[in-house]
Simulated scan of single mutants.
Amino acid sequence: MPLVEPGDDLAHLIGARLRDSHIGLQDGDIVVLAQKIVSKAEGRYIDLNDVRPSQQAMELAAKTGKDPRHVEVVLSQADEIVKTGPQVIVVAHRLGFVMANAGVDESNIDHAGSARVLLLPNSPDDAAAQLKLRFDAMFGISCGVIINDSFGRPWRNGVVGVALGAAGVPSLIDRVGAADLFGRSLKVTEIAAADELASAASLLMGQADEGRPVIVVRNYKSTAPSKPAAALLRSREKDMFR
């Protein structure tokens, strides 16, 4: 994949690389894309030199050790501050995700001689749906699309891939009422299938200079109905930790 620039036609770029690599797309394939290339194509850059930190941003910067300008951008994307720590501000993003630093990131982007950060896509589920339509038309198939990002988790070290956006994928599979090995009915089990697929793809994508922002998942089978990634978001009323 070439480096993605604002305004690039992601579906065209990816489709061309899939053909050139003789991978193509088959019916039922799932294309997992790194969030960054979606954000780059959407031009979701902010130049920190243009940011004027508020008093709240400066206070949080002093508390966390972060750049006050970066903190101001985080605040602009957040509905609620959940927790703070060294170099970390956990927020409820305006898109519904509870995440570190509102997904505002400086890694794996061209800073263009400045100090730039990259925001999340405007609407990950909508972006995934549009890409699915394009891939389906290009290859004459019906595929799934997942937009993947790396999240930390409470109680666990390290990051894992999760689905920010999805289309044509059973993001959340309800197994309530299904029988276990001993015939006992499951009472609360739901499978975050899109997150598990995103996490598996993340192992191949890598986190540093691997340069593999697109992974094709082939032969995953499920009869569960497709749902957008928004189905994975837990409402605040059911969140026991906020």
Rank of each mutant, 00 (worst) to 15 (best):
L13Y: 04
S171Q: 02
L203P: 06
E106S: 11
S76T: 04
V98E: 03
V73F: 05
L181C: 09
L3E: 11
D50Y: 12
P68V: 00
A194W: 00
T64M: 04
R236N: 07
H111N: 12
N122I: 10
D149W: 04
A192T: 11
P121Y: 02
G183V: 09
V162T: 07
E59C: 08
L133E: 13
P121L: 06
L3N: 13
I81D: 04
A137S: 14
G165C: 05
V217M: 09
D174W: 09
A163W: 01
A11S: 13
A200L: 15
D79T: 04
G140R: 05
A166L: 06
P154N: 14
I81W: 04
I23P: 01
E42L: 06
S54C: 14
M138C: 12
L232W: 00
E42R: 01
G165E: 01
S199W: 07
V88G: 11
V117G: 01
Q130A: 07
S39H: 05
G183L: 10
V51G: 06
E196K: 08
N108D: 11
L120F: 01
I109N: 02
A192C: 15
A61H: 07
V82P: 02
K187P: 10
G85N: 07
L48I: 10
D50A: 14
L33H: 05
L60I: 13
A41I: 05
P154Q: 14
D20K: 05
A112F: 10
L13P: 03
A208V: 15
G113N: 06
A112V: 12
L119D: 00
S171N: 04
E196D: 08
L120N: 01
I46H: 05
V176H: 12
F97W: 09
A231M: 14
D125M: 01
T84P: 10
A208M: 15
A112C: 12
V214H: 06
A16E: 07
A61N: 09
Q77G: 07
R175Y: 07
C143S: 15
Y220P: 00
A100S: 05
E237I: 05
G161E: 02
G113C: 10
M205V: 14
V160L: 11
A11P: 03
V74A: 07
E190K: 13
D209Q: 12
F139N: 00
G85L: 08
A102C: 10
N157D: 10
